[in-house]
C-alpha cells in the first residue's frame, strides 16, 4: 500500500463524507418531504433503527441485501403511515407522537433484532469509482455505494419536484396553509399522510444502509443518533433538498476528521475533534441565521417553527 502521509486527512474526509453521509442524507430528505407538507416527524431515529434491523434480518434470511433495503423501506413507510394517521386527529401533537414512536421503533427493533446480532448478513455491493487511480487509498475512498448516488439523485429530483411539478406544489400549498389547501379542494390530511409515509420509507432505507453497508452490521448501538441529527439538519438545510445533500456531506466529512487526524499522529484532545461536525454545523447555522429572516423557507404549518 502506498504511503500517503498527510494526504490521508483530506482523503479520509472525502471518503468519510461519502461513507458516513448516506444515512443522514436519506433521513433528512425524508424529513424534508414530511416537513414541507407541514408535519414534523421527530421519530425518524426509531424508524432508522427499525429499518436497520429489518434490512439486516431480511438480507440475512433471503441472502439478498437489496431485498433487505426494500423491506426496510416498507417498514419505514408503515411507521410513517402510522405517524401520519395518528397526527390526523385534532389536538394530537406531532412532535410528541414522533418521540413516542422513536421509542416504539427502537423497542421493536431491539426486541426482534436480538437473534440477528450474531449472524452475518450479506452487504450491499459498492461501485469502485476509483478505478482510474493506482493508489489503493483513493480506490478505497471512492468505493461508492449505489445508495449514495441514489440519494444524490433523489435530492435533485425532490428539488425539481418541489419547484416544477404539481405534486410538489400540492405539498407546498398544504405545508404553507391548511386553510388555503382546503379552499382549493386539497385534502391536507391525505397529502401529509403520504408525505410522512414517503419520509418514513426513506428513513428506513437510511437505516438499511447502516446495517447493510457501513458499518455493515446490526447491533443495538448501530445508530449513534443519526436519525435525530438528520431531522435537525433539515432545519439547517432550510427545507431545501439540495442543501440537505450538502449538509449530510458536511456532516459525514467532518465526522471523519477525528479518526483521520489521529491516524497521522494528531491525537491529543481527540474528543474535541470528534465534536467537529457539531461545532461546524452550529457555527454555520449561527452565521447563516439572522433575526429578521429567522425561518426563511419554513413551511407555514410546521409546529416546530410556528
Amino acid at each position: 500500500m502506498t504511503d500517503i502521509g498527510l494526504w490521508g486527512v483530506p482523503l479520509a474526509i472525502l471518503g468519510g463524507a461519502i461513507r458516513v453521509s448516506t444515512p443522514f442524507l436519506f433521513v433528512s430528505l425524508g424529513e424534508c418531504l414530511t416537513e414541507r407538507s407541514g408535519r414534523i416527524n421527530l421519530g425518524l431515529e426509531g424508524t432508522l433503527v427499525f429499518g436497520a434491523m429489518t434490512g439486516y434480518a431480511v438480507a440475512y434470511q433471503s441472502g439478498s441485501p437489496w431485498l433487505g433495503v426494500l423491506a426496510a423501506a416498507l417498514a419505514g413507510a408503515v411507521f410513517g403511515l402510522f405517524h401520519g394517521w395518528i397526527c390526523k386527529f385534532r389536538g394530537v401533537n406531532d412532535i410528541a407522537i414522533g418521540i413516542a414512536m422513536m421509542l416504539l421503533g427502537m423497542g421493536l427493533a431491539f426486541y426482534f433484532g436480538k437473534p440477528f446480532i450474531q449472524p452475518v448478513a450479506p452487504d450491499l455491493p459498492a461501485i469502485p469509482l476509483g478505478w482510474w487511480s493506482d493508489i489503493p487509498q483513493v480506490q478505497a475512498a471512492l468505493q461508492v455505494n449505489a445508495l449514495f448516488i441514489v440519494g444524490g439523485l433523489l435530492a435533485l429530483a425532490l428539488h425539481w419536484m418541489f419547484r416544477a411539478t404539481r405534486i410538489g406544489l400540492t405539498i407546498r400549498v398544504v405545508g404553507d396553509s391548511t386553510d388555503a389547501a382546503r379552499a382549493i379542494g386539497l385534502n391536507p390530511d391525505t397529502v401529509r399522510l403520504l408525505a410522512t409515509a414517503a419520509g418514513g420509507a426513506l428513513a428506513g432505507i437510511g437505516g438499511a444502509y447502516l446495517s447493510l453497508y457501513y458499518p455493515g452490521s446490526w447491533n443495538e448501538g448501530i445508530s449513534s443518533g443519526q436519525g435525530l441529527m438528520a431531522v435537525a439538519l433539515v432545519i439547517f438545510a432550510r427545507w431545501n433538498p439540495i442543501n440537505c445533500f450538502w449538509a449530510a456531506l458536511l456532516f459525514g466529512g467532518a465526522g471523519a476528521l477525528g479518526p483521520a487526524l489521529q491516524s497521522v499522529g494528531v491525537s491529543s484532545g481527540y474528543y474535541l475533534f470528534f465534536a467537529a461536525p457539531y461545532v461546524l454545523t452550529l457555527a454555520l447555522l449561527i452565521l447563516t441565521s439572522s433575526p429578521d429572516k429567522a425561518l426563511h423557507g419554513a413551511p407555514g404549518e410546521l409546529s416546530i417553527t410556528k
Binding site: 500517503i4 490521508g8 468519510g16 487509498q137 465526522g255
Partner: peptide, 24 residues
C-alpha cells in the same frame, strides 16, 4: 493507534479502522 472515546460506537469504530487502513 486511534481512540474512539467510547466503548461501543459502531460508525466511529468503522471510521477508525478505515483511517488505519488508509495509513497502510
Amino acid at each position: 493507534v486511534i481512540f474512539t472515546g467510547e466503548w461501543s460506537l459502531a460508525v466511529k469504530e468503522a471510521e477508525a479502522t478505515n483511517a488505519l487502513a488508509d495509513q497502510g
